[in-house]
Design a protein around this nucleic acid. Structure first.
Length: 590
RNA sequence: GGGGCAGUAGCUCAGUUUGGUUAGAGUGUCGGCCUGUCACGCCGAAGGUCGCGGGUUCGAGUCCCGUCUGCCCCGCCA
């Protein structure tokens, strides 16, 4: 090796030893006589000293060193003078007095300086990713990711789960997200699809008798991207045979316990609460409520309707609801501030937002004008509104949109007013999801989770004629308002699976064509089974506190799905076009 | 598909509201000084397609139109 130690390991106990280090120049402090230099590698940083009394020639050579040069140095470890100890540095008690210097690389000034005090633009960081990855923050993130990968593998492996890889070249599935597709050279006109998840494969593995499966696996979905969504992302995919919901949840909670205790360093809750989808939507307007703060949605329909206030009465007559949200200590919010909250909900499809507050004994605003005192007082009690202190924001609109938008407003207010205690960690399960939801455009029923999710037997029998009311045996795990895992018990018999396909508008012949491989597996002895998949990147985001998924992935894509560093997607050459029997589309509509 | 923010020196930004002399700062780079710094300090210099294209104007970084790129949000993401 080029080194005897790393830049992060030398301490006082090494004093007097001759060591060899290798790394990048973080900073140079040339004092004219003596030169200090911070050498960096992924383990840490160590101060080097070039002293004229030790070697004038070395000091002269050290004068030419610049940031990000790669060095190998040999020297003596010595304790720093007492008043020169740097308590900020792990190695701050020592320094290495250099006797030999080898310059292993002397690059030009790099376009991105990893030690820079400024945050480079994201475009620049992605273009020069290899330099960006030298930065302390990215080093920390990638190492946290590594820790979670290892912990997860260890956890499932030690509990008898077998990691089995499944294909990346697979067939396109009709439902769900848009597929990334790959043309076949040997079968012109046929295409592979990259998996949106290994869902069908893992169910088949269960039918094959691998009764506990897991895989840390890449998934691909060609949709629009966000701060927490990438075209390719990683899941911890888990499946179990002979299990109930509770078994999958316990296995999942075990992983979360390990994460809390070993990586986050907080105590794991005695029980992880469960909440139905219906309750979550009603109380928080979302299926992934953030429980680190309160200020829940408050149902005011019955209190505020029927008093002759047109805005409310007309909405309620059309089946709408009136929802309020308490904003503590904002009774003095200006018209402009309230206007900003109103535009926030208007941009998201609500007609308006009414402030409700009692200041010096008077109810202000349109609600105060149209609603009788007694109803307002009751509404204030329901909201726990403190007079002369709190503000409430009230919206009347069709459900469930009014809940969803007020839920978004709740999060927006939490960010704006700092309601979130970032040291808190709140987990909960959301269950009893509807099996189907109606696609507004086509009017068709779509699987809310995926088409292999088992319905709850009673509701399946009871609501055969009303698919919207069928409840599924699906569950999501929510951590601090992020959906970090989602799973379900699966259908394990052909009859139920065909019925569900049919409700989704798929005839048996079509179902056979598309999913025959799964149907056959169900025919020949599939045990009851279920599973879950964790959004691995999102777990790392929460662990590191990063707001962007791109900051926990070594080589991510932009929101336009472009890799700025290596330049993907890119052209293919004419030979490839010919071999794949592809032709460029021309003319309008291309 | 829709809405919003941004693009000026290698990098991070000011300047754009109200068009007007030579487009500034910090940092980095280069040169000089400095023997205990740790974002070392001090002095000096070089460094610009104001994203790109078009328009208005005597004159455009600044106003108008178009376009590209990055980011955020809604829709979308079983």
């Amino acid at each position: 090796m080029y080194r005897t130690h790393t830049c992060g390991e030398l301490r006082g106990e090494h004093a007097g030893e001759t060591v060899t280090l290798a790394g990048w120049v973080a900073r140079v402090r040339d004092l004219g006589g003596v030169i200090f230099l911070t050498l960096r590698d992924r383990y840490g940083r160590t101060q080097l000293v070039f002293h004229p009394e030790r070697s004038r020639e070395l000091v002269e050579r050290a004068k030419r060193l610049r940031q990000e040069w790669v060095l190998q140095v040999t020297g003596t470890v010595r304790p720093r003078p007492d008043d020169m100890v740097n308590p900020e540095m792990a190695t701050g008690g020592i320094e290495v007095a250099v006797d030999e210097l080898v310059v292993l690389a002397s690059p030009d000034t790099p376009p991105l300086l990893p030690e820079d005090e400024f945050e480079p633009s994201e475009e620049h960081r992605l273009r020069w990713r290899f330099l960006d990855l030298r930065r302390e923050r990215m080093r920390r993130n990638l190492l946290a990711r590594h820790e979670l990968l290892q912990l997860s593998r260890r956890y499932f492996s030690e509990r008898g789960f077998v990691e089995i890889e499944t294909p990346y070249l697979t067939r396109s599935t009709p439902e769900g997200a848009r597929d990334f597709v790959v043309p076949s050279r040997l079968h012109h006109g046929s295409w592979y699809a990259l998996p949106q998840s290994p869902q069908t494969y893992k169910q088949i593995l269960i039918a094959s008798g691998y009764d506990r499966y897991f895989q840390i696996v890449r998934c691909f979905r060609d949709e629009d991207f966000r701060a927490n969504r990438q075209p390719e992302f990683t899941q911890i995919d888990v499946e179990m045979a002979f299990c109930h919901e509770r078994d999958v949840m316990e296995a999942s909670e075990g992983l979360m316990r390990a994460i809390f205790e070993q990586l986050v360093g907080v105590e794991f809750p005695e029980t992880v609460p469960r909440m139905s989808y219906e309750e979550a939507m009603r109380r928080f307007g979302t299926d992934k409520p953030d429980l680190r703060f309160g200020n829940e949605l408050v149902e005011l329909t019955d209190l505020l309707a029927g008093h002759g206030f047109g805005v409310i009465d007309n909405t309620v007559a059309g089946g709408g609801r009136v929802i309020g949200l308490r904003v503590p200590e904002q009774a003095s919010a200006s018209r402009k501030e309230v206007g900003e909250f109103e535009s926030y909900v208007k941009e998201r499809g609500l007609g308006g937002l009414m402030p409700l507050r009692r200041v010096s004994g008077d109810w202000s605003g349109p609600l105060g004008k149209f609603i009788p005192e007694s109803a307002l007082a009751e509404a204030a009690r329901t909201l726990a509104l403190e007079p002369d202190s709190d503000l409430a924001l009230v919206a009347a609109a069709p459900a469930p949109r009014v809940h969803q938008v007020m839920g978004m407003l709740r999060l927006e207010l939490a960010r704006k007013f700092g309601w979130i205690d970032t040291d808190r960690h709140e987990l909960l399960w959301i269950d009893r999801f509807p099996l189907f939801e109606k696609d507004e455009e086509s009017g068709r029923w779509l699987a809310l989770h995926h088409p292999f999710t088992a319905p709850e037997p009673e509701s399946f029998a009871e609501h055969a004629g009303d698919p919207g009311r069928i409840i599924s045996q699906a569950y999501d795990l929510v951590w601090n308002g992020e959906e970090v895992a989602g799973g379900s018990l699966r259908i394990h018999d052909r009859e139920t699976q065909l019925t569900v396909f049919e409700l989704l508008g798929m005839q048996p012949a079509e179902a056979k064509r598309r999913f025959n491989f799964l149907m056959e597996a169900l025919d020949y002895g599939a045990p009851p089974h279920g599973g879950i998949a964790f959004g691995f990147d999102r777990l790392v985001m929460i662990l590191t506190g990063e707001p962007s998924i791109r900051d926990v992935i070594a080589f991510p894509k932009t929101t336009q799905a472009v890799a700025l560093f290596e330049g993907a997607p890119g052209e293919i050459d004419d030979v490839q076009w010919r071999e794949l029997a592809l032709a460029r589309a021309t003319g309008p509509g291309k």
